[in-house]
Design a binder for these strands. Structure first.
Length: 570
RNA sequence: GGCGCGGUAGCUCAGUUGGUUAGAGCGAACGACUCAUAAUCGUUAGGUCGGGGGUUCAAGUCCCCCCCACGCCA
């Protein structure tokens, strides 16, 4: 039995994520995790919050809280929202955990032993008023090229010229506004990725079937310009993982922490340790150590395209460079961006729908269905309220929800609230069963391949087949001449509801559970032989008529939400 | 500016290694049905596949140039 290790890119702690973030990693990862569990495979599905770095410090300062406290609170907020969307993490960890501290320091020590870390003395801008070194993006000044007054330290937004902070005229700190800046020497550690270029490229080249988006981004970083560059992995900050060489101090690096991109992916592993330490499991190494049982694990990562370089190059460089038997990723599923109504989602402008707001206005299943069935797989895709309304109303309310409604209500009125006996299945029924078996295979094939949109389309086709069947055999007409035959038709239709609930659960877990409750069954294992599966509810089995599974979104609601989430113009 | 992913029916998107009349869902029109959340089912209409060259017996599918949109640039 295959075992699946699945991770979603870890969301940054700073604030609540929008729907584009959700559909770019956590949600499709959850779909895959739920599917693999439903197929009876063992799954370890991990995520976490990414908590270190300057933005977290600034957000905490803005909230008037110590950064540790801020992160702890925001972690809880994100965890609750994740539950709201039914993201079925086995553990939702924190990159600030003691486990990640220790593991990150361990990797740094090992990489140093392998000669893959070098010390570099460089000049950076220090703000006396802020009492800290300033990252490039927190320094602004006048552009020496075009005279724009709010050019950032890394680039001028006006003329797009790339800059060094020291190029700026009259630079100031964007944190405090202070102009009392000076250049100071500071020492940092660099990970020698350039030494590993060939090894990484060879590794990438031997990955089979990876999405074009994934490999093209990796290749670009490997070969663009002078090729893969060494990267600084430390910062002069307070909040983060103290720089240590394993358990030992690192002379000259006192008071410094690891840079967030170094420790964040290591949290994937640490999260599994947290899973054990929080009492949810007892062996994390069989998922992560190929010398301790993880040889047969298939590891799949989900992420947005902005995260691809870290997952194809930086993190593998850490793993490969350590020469230790850690599990490397087998497949990377990356996503493009979801746009909002003709533009980008914008956190700063409050444009678009954020995860907490989405759950305020509609149940998780509505969002799950729309986002997954429109996932930005091959290119950026677009959220519009009109599309959302029509898709959800048509697919969930009309095709699926109404199917359950028409079948159960018809049965109740003609045969009562139990599965009717009557004739055996005839030609039309066997034809439908054969057709569904084919369609189920298509659905399974797409799900295995993580073709999210195609999976949704295949699932929908299975729902539609039920309506086609009903229309063809018309039990409401059959009933007038041959009640026994009508009973057989509706018996099959009732069984379809259970079947739909089971196979739809990765997409719409709550609605699936409701339908199974209505059908009063706990037979939820993944369907094998459909001829058997579609007789699972036997004559005499009691059921209840479910409440409206999916109510429709009205035009008024759509208009209201469209207005509410338009954001303010800048 | 460099690079990257795209530009296919009104909308959202599929289109394997180039090969017969370019597909799906939604929307639209018409019809059927009336069990159901005015739901469902069927039929039809609609595209010079961003533009221009080229290779080929044959190109949405390969090559070159251009235009547009989006993104990335450590």
């Amino acid at each position: 039995m295959p075992r699946h290790l699945i991770t979603s890119a870890i969301p940054y702690i700073n604030g609540i994520k929008h729907l584009g973030n959700l559909v770019g990693s956590q949600l499709p990862a959850d779909l895959f995790a739920r599917y693999q569990r439903a197929r009876g495979n063992e799954v370890m599905f991990l995520c976490a919050t990414d908590e270190h770095g300057t933005p977290a410090e600034l957000a905490a300062a803005k909230a008037g809280k110590p950064v540790a406290e801020y992160c702890a609170e925001m972690h809880e907020v994100q965890a609750r929202i994740a539950e709201g969307f039914r993201l079925s993490f086995d553990h939702f960890g924190r990159s600030s955990s003691p486990q990640n501290h220790k593991l990150t320091q361990h990797f740094a020590g090992v990489l140093a032993d392998r000669g893959l870390i070098r010390e570099v003395t460089e000049t950076q801008v220090y703000s006396k008023a802020d009492g800290r070194f300033l990252p490039d993006r927190y320094i602004e000044g006048t552009c020496p090229n075009c005279g724009y007054e709010s050019a950032r330290g890394d680039q001028c937004d006006n003329c797009t010229k790339q800059l060094d902070p020291t190029d700026l005229i009259e630079p100031y700190s964007t944190i405090s506004g202070s102009k009392d800046l000076e250049e100071r020497e500071t020492k940092h550690l660099y990970l020698c990725q350039s030494q590993m270029k060939d090894q990484l490229e060879q590794w990438i080249d031997t990955r089979e079937g990876w999405p074009i988006l994934t490999t093209s981004i990796a290749k670009k970083w490997l070969n663009d310009g002078d090729g893969l560059q060494d990267r600084g992995i430390t910062r002069d900050l307070d909040w983060g993982i103290p720089v240590k060489k394993g358990d030992e101090d690192w002379p000259g690096m006192e008071g410094k922490v690891f840079y967030v991109w170094f420790d964040a992916p290591i949290e994937y592993i640490a999260s599994a340790q947290e899973w054990v330490d929080s009492g949810k499991g007892d062996d994390w190494e069989r998922w992560w150590r190929t010398d301790k049982g993880a040889e047969d694990v298939r590891y799949t990562q989900f992420m947005g395209k902005d995260n691809v370089p870290f997952h194809t190059l930086s993190f593998p460089a850490t793993i490969l460079g350590s020469e230790e038997p850690w599990k490397l990723v087998d497949y990377i599923k990356s996503f493009n961006y979801l746009n909002y109504d003709g533009g980008q989602f914008s956190t700063s402008r409050g444009r678009g729908v954020f995860m907490d707001q989405a759950l305020e206005i509609l149940p998780a299943d509505y969002w799950r269905w729309w986002l997954l069935s429109h996932a930005p797989e091959s290119s950026d895709s677009e959220f519009t309220w009109e599309n959302f309304q029509s898709s959800v109303n048509k697919d969930l309310a009309d095709v699926l929800g109404n199917f359950a409604s028409r079948v159960t209500k018809f049965c109740r009125s003609k045969f009562g609230e139990e599965v009717p006996a009557g004739a055996d299945y005839g030609d039309a029924e066997h034809k439908l069963i054969a057709d569904l078996a084919d369609k189920l295979r298509v659905y399974e094939t797409h799900m295995e391949a993580m073709e999210v949109r195609k999976s949704a389309a295949a699932l929908r086709a299975i729902w539609v087949a039920g309506n086609e069947y009903l229309q063809e055999v018309a039990p409401w007409s059959t009933f007038k001449e041959d009640p026994d035959k009508a009973a057989a038709q509706i018996r099959l239709a009732l069984n379809l509801i259970r079947f739909y609930a089971v196979i739809s659960s990765p997409f719409i877990p709550d609605a699936s559970a409701e339908l199974l409750t209505a059908m009063q069954t706990d037979k939820t294992s993944w369907p094998g032989d459909l001829a058997v599966e579609l007789t699972a509810l036997e004559p005499g089995h009691a059921f209840t008529v479910p409440d409206v599974t999916f109510r429709k979104i009205t035009d008024d609601e759509r208009a209201e939400w469209q207005e509410r989430f338009a954001g303010t113009r800048d």
